[in-house]
């Protein structure tokens, strides 16, 4: 069995904020009726979290659940456990109109941390990122320059960013340029 390696294998960059590729992250896309009790229990069993409301993200380390749309959740689990969690989830949802798919290897995850993290993201996404508008516990699906990306905050100065693995190199270069030393804008 070959050893799984993430897109950029923990590449990192230090500028006005620290940019890191987080490595492998287990991810399950779950689609279905989010008000369904069976689905809620499957999410609870996999992550220990309740089903998030509109644009909420309940993430603790590499486990959690994020709201992606009115009928879609992103379930985060440790990479090593994703097959077992997916099997349990698929089993629990067998009688329900729902679909769970392992998308771990289709994604790349980045962390941007530091006092200027909001600035770095603010340069790339058309999103209001002031402390009043965007807080830990929220997720925002948007774009990073030309590619789709979603992000949430782990704490007041740390963003976690998810994008497609095929765009990982592009996204990392974007973040590096946005975090260049001396490029502070001073808006946030």
């Amino acid at each position: 069995m070959s050893e799984p390696i993430s897109a950029l294998n923990h590449a990192s960059y230090e500028g006005i904020a620290k940019v890191e590729e987080c490595g492998l992250q287990g991810m399950i896309t779950l689609r279905g009726d989010l008000s369904d009790k069976v689905l809620a229990k499957a999410v609870k069993d996999a992550t220990g979290q309740k089903v998030p409301g509109q644009r909420e993200a309940f993430v603790d380390g590499d486990t959690g659940v994020c709201w992606m749309s009115t009928d879609e959740l992103l379930v985060l689990v440790p990479y090593a456990e994703v097959e077992a969690k997916l099997a349990a989830m698929t089993n629990a949802l067998s009688g329900t109109h729902a679909l769970a798919v392992n998308v771990s290897d289709a994604r790349a995850v980045f962390r941007v941390s530091g006092a200027n993290a909001r600035e770095v993201l603010g340069k790339l996404a058309p999103v209001e990122l002031s402390a009043e508008a965007f807080q830990p516990g929220q997720i925002r699906r948007s774009r990073l320059a030309q590619v789709a990306g979603a992000f949430w905050m782990d704490d007041a100065e740390t963003f976690r960013i998810v994008c497609f693995r095929s765009a990982a190199d592009y996204a990392f270069k974007l973040l590096k340029v946005a975090a260049q030393p001396g490029s502070e804008v001073g808006v946030y």
């Binding site: 509109q54 644009r55 749309s69 009115t70 058309p126 209001e128 925002r140 699906r141 948007s142 774009r143």
Partner: peptide, 9 residues
């Protein structure tokens, strides 16, 4: 999703 999305999104 309740987001005020601008044109490029």
């Amino acid at each position: 999703c309740g987001v005020d999305a601008e044109e490029t999104e």
